[in-house]
Design a protein around this nucleic acid. Structure first.
Length: 133
DNA sequence: GCCAACGTTGGC
DNA sequence: GCCAACGTTGGC
């Protein structure tokens, strides 16, 4: 099973909107590295939903329900369909991610501009534990 | 609002 | 194919 982290600015597309929409496409990724990560996603993979710019925290967990398909707005890029599954009891702040030694090598911390990044199984577990406080 | 980091574009 | 200029992302 694969694990990922996906960023969205909450004033563009928020966790609450994702929950309300149930299954919805993840749109407007215009970065090839992020696209390649989306292409690597498998149905059933899990992804953290991160609020960037405003909030700066992981707010919950989504599931990949449909693997990549061409973005009708730009054929060079792709979409995946995602569904919110579990809200975090306690959102995990960026500052807390940075402060956790176990997460020092996390892709999103090393390359902060990448909007879709892989998460290791160990990192996934660590972050889920942090959300249970 | 600023700026660092990084991606993209276009001239050569 | 290189690299300078420029644009964008996203934290602070």
């Amino acid at each position: 099973m694969g694990y990922w982290l996906m960023k969205s600015e909450p004033f563009v597309w928020s966790w609450d909107q994702q929950v309300a929409a149930k299954t919805a496409p993840w749109t407007d990724v215009r970065n090839y590295q992020a696209r390649n990560n989306m292409k690597a996603m498998k149905r059933g993979d899990q992804a953290f939903f991160y609020h960037s710019t405003k909030g700066l925290e992981i707010v919950g967990v989504m599931e990949i329900v449909k693997e990549h398909y061409p973005d009708p707005k730009d054929e060079r890029f792709v979409l995946v369909d995602v569904k919110a599954t579990t809200p975090f009891k306690t959102p995990v702040k960026l500052a807390d991610l940075k402060a956790a030694p176990a997460l020092a090598n996390m892709a999103m911390l090393r390359q902060s501009r990448l909007s879709v990044s892989p998460v290791t199984a160990a990192e996934w577990k660590t972050i889920c534990k942090m959300s249970e406080k």
